[in-house]
Amino acid sequence: MEHSIIDAHIHLDLYSADERVIILRDMEKYRVKALISVSQHLSSAKANLKLSQEDPRIRPAFGFHPEQALPAEKELAELQLFIEKYHSHMAAVGEVGLPYYLRKKDPRIPIEPYIEILELFILQAAALNKPIALHAIYEDAPIVCTLLEKYSITKAHFHWFKGDQKTMEQMTSNGYFVSITPDVLYEQKTQQLVKQYPLSHMMVETDGPWPFEGPFKKKMTHPQMIHHTIEKIASVKKMEAQEVYDILYENTKQVYF
Protein backbone atom coordinates (compact mmCIF):
# COMPACT_ATOMS: atom_id res chain seq x y z
CA MET A 1 0.00 0.00 0.00
CA GLU A 2 1.48 3.34 -1.09
CA HIS A 3 -1.03 5.80 0.39
CA SER A 4 -1.49 6.72 4.05
CA ILE A 5 -4.93 6.65 5.65
CA ILE A 6 -6.59 7.50 8.98
CA ASP A 7 -9.72 5.76 10.25
CA ALA A 8 -11.76 8.76 11.40
CA HIS A 9 -14.29 6.75 13.42
CA ILE A 10 -13.84 3.31 14.96
CA HIS A 11 -14.93 1.66 18.23
CA LEU A 12 -11.65 -0.08 18.93
CA ASP A 13 -12.61 -0.97 22.50
CA LEU A 14 -15.57 -3.03 21.21
CA TYR A 15 -13.35 -5.48 19.33
CA SER A 16 -12.11 -8.60 21.08
CA ALA A 17 -8.53 -8.51 22.37
CA ASP A 18 -7.46 -10.89 19.57
CA GLU A 19 -9.10 -8.72 16.91
CA ARG A 20 -7.39 -5.61 18.27
CA VAL A 21 -4.03 -7.39 18.04
CA ILE A 22 -4.69 -8.11 14.35
CA ILE A 23 -5.73 -4.52 13.59
CA LEU A 24 -2.78 -2.93 15.39
CA ARG A 25 -0.35 -5.43 13.89
CA ASP A 26 -1.66 -4.69 10.37
CA MET A 27 -1.60 -0.90 10.61
CA GLU A 28 1.89 -0.47 9.20
CA LYS A 29 1.25 -2.96 6.40
CA TYR A 30 -1.84 -1.06 5.26
CA ARG A 31 -0.36 2.39 6.02
CA VAL A 32 -3.00 3.18 8.64
CA LYS A 33 -1.40 6.08 10.48
CA ALA A 34 -4.02 6.56 13.20
CA LEU A 35 -7.37 5.39 14.56
CA ILE A 36 -9.87 7.84 16.04
CA SER A 37 -11.46 5.53 18.61
CA VAL A 38 -14.77 6.85 19.92
CA SER A 39 -16.44 5.92 23.19
CA GLN A 40 -19.87 4.64 24.18
CA HIS A 41 -19.93 5.73 27.84
CA LEU A 42 -17.64 6.22 30.85
CA SER A 43 -16.18 2.70 31.02
CA SER A 44 -15.68 2.77 27.24
CA ALA A 45 -13.86 6.11 27.56
CA LYS A 46 -11.58 4.61 30.22
CA ALA A 47 -10.87 1.62 27.95
CA ASN A 48 -10.03 3.88 24.99
CA LEU A 49 -7.76 6.03 27.13
CA LYS A 50 -5.87 2.90 28.23
CA LEU A 51 -5.56 1.68 24.63
CA SER A 52 -4.18 5.07 23.56
CA GLN A 53 -1.63 5.03 26.37
CA GLU A 54 -0.43 1.62 25.16
CA ASP A 55 -0.27 2.69 21.49
CA PRO A 56 -0.01 6.38 20.50
CA ARG A 57 -1.48 5.64 17.04
CA ILE A 58 -4.84 5.35 18.83
CA ARG A 59 -6.48 8.76 19.29
CA PRO A 60 -9.36 8.45 21.77
CA ALA A 61 -12.59 10.41 21.81
CA PHE A 62 -14.72 10.48 24.96
CA GLY A 63 -18.50 10.70 24.98
CA PHE A 64 -21.88 9.00 25.45
CA HIS A 65 -23.41 7.19 22.48
CA PRO A 66 -27.08 8.19 22.26
CA GLU A 67 -28.49 4.84 21.08
CA GLN A 68 -28.84 3.55 24.66
CA ALA A 69 -30.78 4.29 27.82
CA LEU A 70 -30.09 7.65 29.42
CA PRO A 71 -27.13 7.65 31.83
CA ALA A 72 -27.67 8.18 35.53
CA GLU A 73 -26.83 11.74 36.63
CA LYS A 74 -23.84 10.43 38.57
CA GLU A 75 -22.37 8.64 35.54
CA LEU A 76 -22.91 11.68 33.32
CA ALA A 77 -21.19 13.93 35.85
CA GLU A 78 -18.31 11.47 36.19
CA LEU A 79 -17.93 11.27 32.40
CA GLN A 80 -17.78 15.06 32.09
CA LEU A 81 -15.18 15.20 34.87
CA PHE A 82 -13.21 12.47 33.09
CA ILE A 83 -13.28 14.51 29.86
CA GLU A 84 -12.12 17.58 31.77
CA LYS A 85 -9.29 15.65 33.44
CA TYR A 86 -8.01 13.88 30.33
CA HIS A 87 -8.82 16.43 27.62
CA SER A 88 -5.14 16.76 26.68
CA HIS A 89 -5.16 13.02 25.77
CA MET A 90 -8.39 13.35 23.83
CA ALA A 91 -8.83 13.85 20.09
CA ALA A 92 -12.49 14.85 20.38
CA VAL A 93 -15.71 14.72 22.34
CA GLY A 94 -17.55 11.73 20.95
CA GLU A 95 -19.47 9.76 20.08
CA VAL A 96 -22.43 11.92 21.07
CA GLY A 97 -25.74 12.79 19.42
CA LEU A 98 -29.40 11.82 19.33
CA PRO A 99 -31.11 8.38 19.51
CA TYR A 100 -32.72 7.93 16.08
CA TYR A 101 -32.86 4.11 16.02
CA LEU A 102 -33.83 3.82 19.68
CA ARG A 103 -36.86 6.05 19.10
CA LYS A 104 -37.77 4.19 15.93
CA LYS A 105 -37.95 1.05 18.02
CA ASP A 106 -39.90 2.78 20.79
CA PRO A 107 -41.51 6.13 19.78
CA ARG A 108 -42.53 6.73 23.41
CA ILE A 109 -38.92 7.57 24.29
CA PRO A 110 -38.69 11.37 24.64
CA ILE A 111 -35.94 13.14 22.74
CA GLU A 112 -35.71 16.18 25.04
CA PRO A 113 -33.44 14.61 27.72
CA TYR A 114 -31.06 13.45 24.98
CA ILE A 115 -30.97 16.97 23.53
CA GLU A 116 -30.12 18.32 27.00
CA ILE A 117 -27.24 15.85 27.36
CA LEU A 118 -25.96 16.58 23.87
CA GLU A 119 -25.99 20.29 24.66
CA LEU A 120 -23.79 19.62 27.71
CA PHE A 121 -21.24 17.84 25.51
CA ILE A 122 -21.36 20.57 22.87
CA LEU A 123 -20.72 23.16 25.59
CA GLN A 124 -17.79 21.09 26.85
CA ALA A 125 -16.32 20.69 23.36
CA ALA A 126 -16.56 24.47 22.90
CA ALA A 127 -14.95 25.19 26.27
CA LEU A 128 -12.08 22.77 25.60
CA ASN A 129 -11.74 23.82 21.94
CA LYS A 130 -12.12 20.21 20.80
CA PRO A 131 -13.88 18.77 17.74
CA ILE A 132 -17.07 16.80 18.25
CA ALA A 133 -17.91 13.39 16.70
CA LEU A 134 -21.63 13.10 16.09
CA HIS A 135 -24.32 10.48 15.66
CA ALA A 136 -27.06 12.61 14.08
CA ILE A 137 -29.02 11.20 11.17
CA TYR A 138 -32.17 11.89 9.15
CA GLU A 139 -34.49 14.31 10.98
CA ASP A 140 -32.16 14.50 14.00
CA ALA A 141 -29.41 16.19 11.97
CA PRO A 142 -31.13 19.62 11.67
CA ILE A 143 -31.68 19.68 15.47
CA VAL A 144 -27.97 19.05 15.99
CA CYS A 145 -26.99 21.66 13.40
CA THR A 146 -29.03 24.26 15.29
CA LEU A 147 -27.26 23.38 18.56
CA LEU A 148 -23.84 23.57 16.91
CA GLU A 149 -24.70 26.98 15.45
CA LYS A 150 -25.88 28.18 18.87
CA TYR A 151 -22.40 27.58 20.31
CA SER A 152 -20.45 28.51 17.15
CA ILE A 153 -18.98 25.01 16.78
CA THR A 154 -17.08 24.64 13.50
CA LYS A 155 -15.12 21.39 13.95
CA ALA A 156 -18.11 19.05 13.82
CA HIS A 157 -17.90 15.57 12.33
CA PHE A 158 -21.16 13.85 11.31
CA HIS A 159 -20.12 10.22 11.02
CA TRP A 160 -22.02 7.95 8.60
CA PHE A 161 -24.33 10.87 7.75
CA LYS A 162 -27.83 10.25 6.41
CA GLY A 163 -30.09 13.20 5.75
CA ASP A 164 -31.96 15.38 3.28
CA GLN A 165 -30.64 17.87 0.74
CA LYS A 166 -31.51 20.95 2.82
CA THR A 167 -29.60 19.63 5.86
CA MET A 168 -26.65 18.70 3.67
CA GLU A 169 -26.54 22.24 2.29
CA GLN A 170 -26.69 23.67 5.84
CA MET A 171 -23.83 21.40 6.93
CA THR A 172 -21.76 22.32 3.88
CA SER A 173 -22.37 26.02 4.48
CA ASN A 174 -21.24 25.66 8.11
CA GLY A 175 -18.12 23.72 7.14
CA TYR A 176 -19.08 20.52 8.96
CA PHE A 177 -17.37 17.27 8.03
CA VAL A 178 -18.87 13.92 7.04
CA SER A 179 -17.12 10.55 6.85
CA ILE A 180 -17.71 7.80 4.33
CA THR A 181 -17.95 4.12 5.26
CA PRO A 182 -17.15 0.99 3.19
CA ASP A 183 -20.83 0.67 2.25
CA VAL A 184 -20.10 3.26 -0.46
CA LEU A 185 -19.09 0.25 -2.57
CA TYR A 186 -22.67 -1.02 -2.71
CA GLU A 187 -25.06 1.64 -1.32
CA GLN A 188 -26.38 4.17 -3.82
CA LYS A 189 -27.34 6.66 -1.09
CA THR A 190 -23.77 6.75 0.17
CA GLN A 191 -22.51 7.18 -3.39
CA GLN A 192 -24.94 10.08 -3.81
CA LEU A 193 -23.60 11.71 -0.63
CA VAL A 194 -20.06 11.39 -2.01
CA LYS A 195 -21.18 12.95 -5.28
CA GLN A 196 -22.78 15.95 -3.60
CA TYR A 197 -20.66 16.67 -0.54
CA PRO A 198 -17.43 18.65 -1.03
CA LEU A 199 -14.28 16.54 -0.78
CA SER A 200 -12.72 19.38 1.23
CA HIS A 201 -15.01 18.41 4.14
CA MET A 202 -14.95 14.64 3.86
CA MET A 203 -13.14 11.91 5.81
CA VAL A 204 -13.23 8.10 5.78
CA GLU A 205 -14.15 5.68 8.54
CA THR A 206 -15.03 2.06 9.28
CA ASP A 207 -17.27 2.45 12.36
CA GLY A 208 -15.83 -0.97 13.23
CA PRO A 209 -16.66 -3.47 14.50
CA TRP A 210 -19.93 -2.70 12.67
CA PRO A 211 -20.15 -5.31 9.85
CA PHE A 212 -20.61 -4.59 6.16
CA GLU A 213 -22.20 -6.36 3.22
CA GLY A 214 -21.18 -6.61 -0.43
CA PRO A 215 -17.50 -7.54 -0.85
CA PHE A 216 -17.02 -7.32 2.95
CA LYS A 217 -19.77 -9.76 3.92
CA LYS A 218 -18.81 -12.00 6.88
CA LYS A 219 -15.42 -10.28 7.15
CA MET A 220 -14.14 -8.58 10.28
CA THR A 221 -14.35 -4.83 9.78
CA HIS A 222 -10.76 -3.70 9.37
CA PRO A 223 -9.28 -0.25 8.62
CA GLN A 224 -7.70 -1.63 5.44
CA MET A 225 -11.24 -1.53 3.95
CA ILE A 226 -10.74 2.25 3.74
CA HIS A 227 -8.46 1.78 0.71
CA HIS A 228 -11.42 0.32 -1.20
CA THR A 229 -13.61 3.18 0.06
CA ILE A 230 -11.18 5.80 -1.24
CA GLU A 231 -10.89 4.14 -4.63
CA LYS A 232 -14.68 4.28 -4.91
CA ILE A 233 -14.77 7.93 -3.80
CA ALA A 234 -12.20 8.76 -6.48
CA SER A 235 -14.33 6.96 -9.07
CA VAL A 236 -17.53 8.78 -8.04
CA LYS A 237 -15.75 12.15 -7.94
CA LYS A 238 -13.97 11.39 -11.24
CA MET A 239 -10.62 12.28 -9.68
CA GLU A 240 -7.19 10.69 -9.43
CA ALA A 241 -6.99 8.36 -6.43
CA GLN A 242 -3.70 9.92 -5.25
CA GLU A 243 -5.31 13.35 -4.97
CA VAL A 244 -8.31 11.96 -3.08
CA TYR A 245 -6.02 10.10 -0.64
CA ASP A 246 -4.06 13.28 0.03
CA ILE A 247 -7.12 15.47 0.59
CA LEU A 248 -8.87 13.00 2.91
CA TYR A 249 -5.70 12.48 4.94
CA GLU A 250 -5.14 16.23 5.37
CA ASN A 251 -8.81 16.79 6.24
CA THR A 252 -8.61 14.26 9.07
CA LYS A 253 -5.37 15.75 10.39
CA GLN A 254 -7.00 19.19 10.30
CA VAL A 255 -9.93 18.00 12.42
CA TYR A 256 -8.30 15.59 14.86
CA PHE A 257 -4.63 16.55 15.23
Rank of each mutant, 00 (worst) to 15 (best):
E2Y: 03
S4I: 00
I5N: 12
I5Q: 11
I10N: 08
I10Y: 09
D13S: 04
L14S: 14
Y15T: 02
Y15G: 03
S16C: 01
A17N: 10
R31W: 01
V32N: 07
V32K: 03
A34T: 01
L35V: 04
I36R: 12
I36C: 14
I36Y: 12
S39F: 09
L42G: 08
L49D: 01
L51T: 08
L51G: 09
Q53G: 00
Q53L: 13
P56Y: 05
R57S: 14
I58P: 07
R59L: 15
H65M: 14
P66K: 07
P66M: 08
A69R: 09
K74E: 15
E78G: 01
Q80I: 06
Y86T: 03
S88K: 14
A92H: 09
A92I: 11
V93E: 03
E95V: 07
G97I: 08
Y100R: 09
K104V: 05
R108K: 15
E112L: 15
E112H: 12
E116C: 07
E116G: 05
L123F: 11
L123A: 13
Q124M: 05
Q124R: 09
Q124S: 02
L128C: 04
K130Q: 09
K130Y: 10
K130W: 04
A133W: 13
L134N: 11
A136V: 04
A136I: 03
D140M: 12
I153A: 13
K155P: 02
K155M: 06
H157D: 11
H157T: 11
H159S: 14
D164K: 08
D164Y: 09
Q165K: 09
N174W: 02
Y176E: 01
T181M: 13
P182F: 11
P182D: 10
P182G: 11
D183I: 10
V194Q: 05
K195Q: 15
L199F: 10
S200Q: 13
S200I: 00
G208F: 02
P209Q: 06
F212I: 05
P215F: 11
K217R: 15
M220E: 01
H222D: 08
Q224L: 07
Q224V: 10
A234D: 12
S235K: 13
V236D: 07
V236A: 10
K237T: 08
E240T: 02
E243Y: 13
I247P: 01
I247D: 02
I247Y: 01
V255D: 05
V255S: 02
Y256G: 01
